[in-house]
Design a protein around this nucleic acid. Structure first.
Length: 465
DNA sequence: TGGGGTTAT
DNA sequence: ATAACCC
């Protein structure tokens, strides 16, 4: 069946826009053939040793001293004072103390303050442009394309020659003010500088930025000048950038497993990957992975900056030396759950699924995890966020059932990790009858319905357990 | 190796 | 439910 191409769906052609007096009309053109602008301006922002910065803000006496943030027996990150003295990320506490006896350590196993600061950063960036994608707690991508276009349209023609780049230009390449591509990236570098300024002025945080035409290149270029600096990549230097990588494993998107498989094919440099026969690569990795990776090797990355929005899951985990009895498991689960329940009530949304994750000791594989999940019964969901009822007890019981489903407790067991995750988050929907919410909530409006709009129906209608 | 997160299969 | 990726 052919779809009718009537005027309806194609109707919203484009709103007529009055020409701005004094604007630069030539910048409208020059987009890619086909009309849809495929050239983007992307920023990658990367906080400097984020956890250490948060700790130094919490306790200013730590400033100026070599500082490490410790989780279990690892120094997961450290400030630049410590790095100068030889401390590296993910170094064991023993090695770090050996290298640097004056090292000050703070415990960073509770991520609460880091998480909160992380979202403040993302929200600050969202004020510049709503299209912000988080990557971990300390990195964000921002699509600056629209902002840059707007600034260019506002630009008076006599201001063009005065435009300057903010921060470094990769390879020290010279900017060509007659090249629209250069101009757009240059304006992007100015926006990135403003974002870093705002992060420092409003949150007290320093970080790096990279500006380029896609996420891959923006991320790679942000790391070129390292603490608290920024770099823009002009298209002519993109091949130099990707070939500056010493190994395919350094390419974001190529992880441990894929790097091993590529190595087995004799691929170790980015150029090896570029020149490797596509068909053979597809045979090894499958069409979609092979095509994506080979594009990455040329510096091509069409993946959009996907707005992260609120988190899709909440989890708490604890690694353990040894956990081998049901009693220990239960008390760990209670601990993890208590924190999660606090977090979830702060968020406002309700999780509809819960999951228990374990790692068994020496189960052959490296860090292999097993999990079981189940829906959260609606009567328990309702009681989340209210202090009036203890959701803890029924949830612990459910999690213990999931546990016994995974582990035969009649046999000896040895766990090295326990984790609880809440996911499948839905809007709180305190949906009262007669409200819009009520009719938009399928589970409510499709079941019982009396069409009666009683103001007395308040909050008691779902207590049918 | 920690204590998180995401997406694809 | 797992496996891969990211920090």
């Amino acid at each position: 069946m052919e779809r009718a191409e009537a005027g309806v769906s194609g109707g919203s052609r484009r709103a007529l826009r009055p020409e701005e007096p004094g604007s630069l009309p030539c910048f409208h053109e020059q987009m890619v053939p086909g009309g849809s602008s495929s050239s983007r301006v992307i920023a990658h922002l990367d906080l400097d040793c984020f956890y250490a910065q948060v700790e130094m803000i919490s306790n200013p006496e730590l400033k100026g001293k070599p500082l490490g943030v410790q989780q279990k027996y690892l120094v997961v990150t450290c400030n630049y004072e410590a790095r100068k003295l030889g401390v590296k990320k993910l170094m064991s506490v023993r090695d770090a103390k050996e290298k640097c006896p004056q090292l000050v350590l703070v415990n960073g196993e509770d991520l609460t303050r880091y998480r909160e600061m992380s979202y403040k950063v993302t929200e600050l960036l969202e004020e510049f442009s709503p299209v912000v994608e988080r990557l971990g707690f300390d990195e964000n991508f921002v699509d600056l394309t629209e902002m840059v276009e707007k600034r260019l349209q506002q630009l008076q023609s006599d201001e063009l020659s005065a435009l300057t780049v903010s921060g470094h230009v990769y390879n020290n390449q010279s900017v060509n003010l007659h090249d629209v591509g250069h101009i757009r990236l240059l304006v992007g570098s100015q926006v990135a500088a403003e974002m870093r300024e705002a992060m420092y002025n409003q949150l007290g945080l320093t970080g790096c930025a990279g500006v380029a035409s896609n996420k891959l290149l923006a991320k790679l270029v942000s790391g070129i000048f390292k603490p608290n600096q920024q770099t823009v990549l002009l298209p002519e230097s993109s091949q130099d950038l990707i070939h500056s990588l010493n190994h395919v494993k350094e390419m974001p998107g190529i992880g441990y497993k894929t790097a091993k498989r590529l190595e087995a094919l004799g691929i170790s440099s980015v150029r090896d990957l570029q020149t490797f026969p596509s068909k053979a690569l597809e045979k090894e990795l499958g069409l979609s992975v092979a095509q994506r990776l080979q594009k990455l090797s040329f510096g091509e990355d069409h993946s959009p900056v996907t707005p992260s929005g609120p988190p899709q899951s909440f989890s708490e985990e604890d690694s353990l030396k040894k956990c081998s009895s049901e009693v220990e498991v239960k008390s760990k689960i209670e601990e993890l759950l208590a924190s999660l329940l606090n977090r979830v009530s702060q968020d406002g949304r309700k999780p509809h699924t819960m999951r228990l994750i374990i790692r068994r000791y020496s189960s052959g594989k490296h860090g292999s995890r097993e999990s079981r999940q189940c829906p959260i019964p609606s009567h328990i969901i309702q009681r989340l966020g209210t202090g009036s009822y203890n959701a803890m007890t029924p949830m612990v019981d459910m999690l213990m059932k999931l546990f016994r489903n995974m582990v035969n407790v009649k046999m000896p067991f040895h766990l090295t990790l326990l984790s609880v995750c809440f996911c499948n988050l839905k809007a709180s929907s305190t949906a009262k009858k007669g409200t819009i919410d009520y009719y938009l909530t399928p589970s409510l409006s499709t079941t019982s319905c009396s069409g009666k709009r009683s103001s007395k129906m308040k909050a008691t209608h779902m207590e049918d357990f």
